[in-house]
Amino acid sequence: MGPETNKRQGMSMPAGPTAKPGKVRIRRFGLPVMVLLCVLLTWWLVSFFHLFPAYAMPSPGAVLNSFKEEISAGRLVNDIIASLWRVAIGFVVSACLGIPLGLWLGQHAAGRQAFVPMLNFFRFLSPLAWIPFAILWFHIGDKPAIFLIFMATFFPLVLATMSAVATIPKIYFRVARDYNYKGIELLTKVTFPAVLPQVITALRVSYGIAWVVIVAAEMVGCQDGLGYGIWEARNGLRLDSAVCYMITIGVLGMGIDRLLAQLTKLPDVRWGYER
């Protein structure tokens, strides 16, 4: 037992690189910051030497100014909240409907055969194609955007959950039978945790879609939101403020994805990412 236990304890430690922690930190944070600075510098140089005409390439200074302007007018914050609200609602609704449907389809071959072609059809239909209908059915405001987010995320989520269920090793269900898991308990205690890592990955992917779609969705039929902000800046011939919205969208999207990535660090899904 002795040698085996020792070996195991060695393995149960996080498999970190042997480099010094300081060096790791530099590589982890220093390099991206350097790349960022390079991009900013290039941008500044391009606008400083007028490589592009000013109307086609706003300068970093102008963008900074419009940041100040948008924040002090309270519009930026309002737009951020509007976009986040729409994404959150659309996303939660599609997860609440899509994941259970995916679980059910994953376990019923007949259901799969019946629904998968239709689901695939809708998945390949760009959510933006729904814009005219979203506006016709839901008029203007939050609803059409939420509908578009739903259309964008529902089908990928269902299909991902379904295929995750279909690939659960049979052995788990045998074990579940040995220990008398049945019905709803089987679903919540075995099937769901078994697909959770893949579902989390699917959530991250479809969140990415949602964030891309919200910007496009808000360009029509909305009165606020980040996408609307870009559209309005464009109508107002203010490319600097459009860039300030673009930066906001990128930073927020990245931040929320980092947040979702935290889910993969939870101990009961960790296994799904280490095999």
Binding site: P169, I171, R174, V175, D178, Y179, P193, A194, L196, G272
Partner: peptide, 26 residues
């Protein structure tokens, strides 16, 4: 009551050692 020990992967990977064992004590 019959229970099976499998070749491998019979444990639920989303449960800790203790939780896996507690399945036997349901």
């Amino acid at each position: 009551i019959i229970r099976t020990v499998y070749q491998h992967d019979g444990l639920f990977p989303w449960l800790s050692v203790l939780e896996n064992i507690s399945m036997g004590l349901r």
